[in-house]
Amino acid sequence: MLITATELKSNLGKYLMLARTEDIYITRNGKIVAKLSNPQQDKIDVAKSLFGVLPADMTLEEAREERLNQI
Results as ranks from 00 to 15, higher is better:
residue 49 S to N: 14
residue 39 P to C: 00
residue 14 K to D: 07
residue 68 L to Q: 11
residue 26 I to N: 01
residue 23 D to R: 12
residue 16 L to M: 06
residue 16 L to S: 01
residue 47 A to F: 15
residue 54 L to Q: 09
residue 67 R to H: 05
residue 7 E to K: 15
residue 49 S to C: 06
residue 30 G to I: 00
residue 7 E to R: 15
residue 28 R to S: 03
residue 21 T to Y: 13
residue 34 A to W: 05
residue 43 K to Y: 14
residue 16 L to W: 05
residue 28 R to L: 02
residue 9 K to W: 10
residue 4 T to C: 10
residue 57 D to V: 04
residue 63 A to M: 10
residue 56 A to G: 08
residue 67 R to F: 07
residue 24 I to T: 07
residue 31 K to G: 00
residue 9 K to F: 11
residue 5 A to L: 11
residue 9 K to S: 11
residue 27 T to V: 00
residue 38 N to G: 03
residue 15 Y to D: 03
residue 39 P to W: 00
residue 66 E to M: 09
residue 12 L to T: 11
residue 32 I to D: 05
residue 69 N to W: 06
residue 13 G to Y: 04
residue 22 E to G: 07
residue 2 L to D: 14
residue 27 T to C: 01
residue 52 G to S: 08
residue 28 R to T: 02
residue 1 M to N: 09
residue 31 K to H: 02
residue 37 S to C: 04
residue 69 N to H: 10
residue 31 K to V: 01
residue 42 D to V: 07
residue 53 V to A: 04
residue 36 L to E: 04
residue 39 P to T: 00
residue 56 A to I: 10
residue 52 G to T: 08
residue 40 Q to T: 04
residue 47 A to E: 15
residue 66 E to C: 03
residue 40 Q to F: 07
residue 52 G to W: 12
residue 23 D to W: 09
residue 39 P to S: 00
residue 22 E to M: 09
residue 28 R to Q: 05
residue 4 T to Y: 14
residue 61 E to S: 13
residue 48 K to S: 09
residue 4 T to V: 10
residue 22 E to C: 09
residue 65 E to N: 11
residue 44 I to F: 15
residue 65 E to V: 06
residue 64 R to K: 15
residue 13 G to V: 01
residue 24 I to N: 08
residue 10 S to I: 00
residue 2 L to P: 08
residue 25 Y to R: 04
residue 23 D to N: 14
residue 8 L to P: 12
residue 17 M to C: 01
residue 45 D to M: 12
residue 61 E to Q: 15
residue 65 E to G: 01
residue 12 L to V: 12
residue 33 V to T: 06
residue 36 L to M: 05
residue 22 E to T: 11
residue 41 Q to P: 06
residue 36 L to S: 03
residue 68 L to G: 00
residue 60 L to H: 13
residue 19 A to D: 06
residue 8 L to N: 08
residue 32 I to L: 01
residue 22 E to Q: 14
residue 37 S to Q: 04
residue 52 G to V: 07
residue 62 E to H: 07
residue 24 I to H: 09
residue 26 I to A: 01
residue 8 L to K: 08
residue 10 S to E: 12
residue 24 I to M: 07
residue 22 E to I: 07
residue 16 L to G: 01
residue 69 N to M: 06
residue 35 K to A: 02
residue 2 L to F: 11
residue 57 D to W: 12
residue 15 Y to E: 02
residue 44 I to Q: 15
residue 23 D to A: 10
residue 42 D to M: 04
residue 32 I to A: 04
residue 28 R to A: 02
residue 3 I to V: 13
residue 43 K to I: 10
residue 43 K to F: 13
residue 51 F to C: 02
residue 21 T to G: 09
residue 23 D to M: 08
residue 5 A to Y: 12
residue 52 G to Q: 11
residue 55 P to R: 13
residue 55 P to Q: 10
residue 30 G to R: 01
residue 58 M to C: 06
residue 36 L to H: 04
residue 11 N to F: 03
residue 34 A to I: 00
residue 32 I to G: 03
residue 27 T to G: 00
residue 3 I to R: 12
residue 47 A to L: 15
residue 15 Y to V: 01
residue 37 S to L: 03
residue 54 L to Y: 08
residue 52 G to L: 07
residue 15 Y to S: 02
residue 40 Q to E: 08
residue 60 L to V: 14
residue 7 E to L: 13
residue 28 R to H: 05
residue 1 M to C: 04
